[in-house]
Amino acid sequence: MQNIYFPLDWFFITLIFFSGAYCMIVSKNIIKLLIGFEIISKASIIAIITSGYLISNINLAQSIIIVMILVEAVVIATGLALVVKSYRINKTIDITKLSNMKG
C-alpha cells in the first residue's frame, strides 16, 4: 500500500488543480480557458488513480478514467469548434465578447 506516499501525491494533485483553476480564472482567451479545464481534469485523473491504488481497486479507477478521458475529448472538441465559429463571426476569441453569438 502507498499510505505513506499519499500526502505527497495529494500535494502534487492540489498544485496541478490550482494551476488549472488559476489559468481558468485569470485568462479571457477561450483557448486558454479550455487548457485550464484540461489541466483540472488531469488533476482529477491523478486523484482517481491514486485513490484507486490506495484502496487496491485499480481496475475500477481505470474504467472511470477511460470514461472521463472520453468526456474530456468531446468537451474540448465542441469547445474548440465554438472557438473557431466565434472567431469567424466576431474576429476575436475574447470570452467577454461572446455576447454576439445568437442563433
Binding site: 488513480i49 491514486t50 484507486g52 485499480i58 481505470q62
Partner: peptide, 13 residues
Amino acid sequence: YSAPWAAVFELSV
C-alpha cells in the same frame, strides 16, 4: 500505478 489501459487512453487521446 499499473494501470496500462488508462495510460494508453491518456497517451493516445
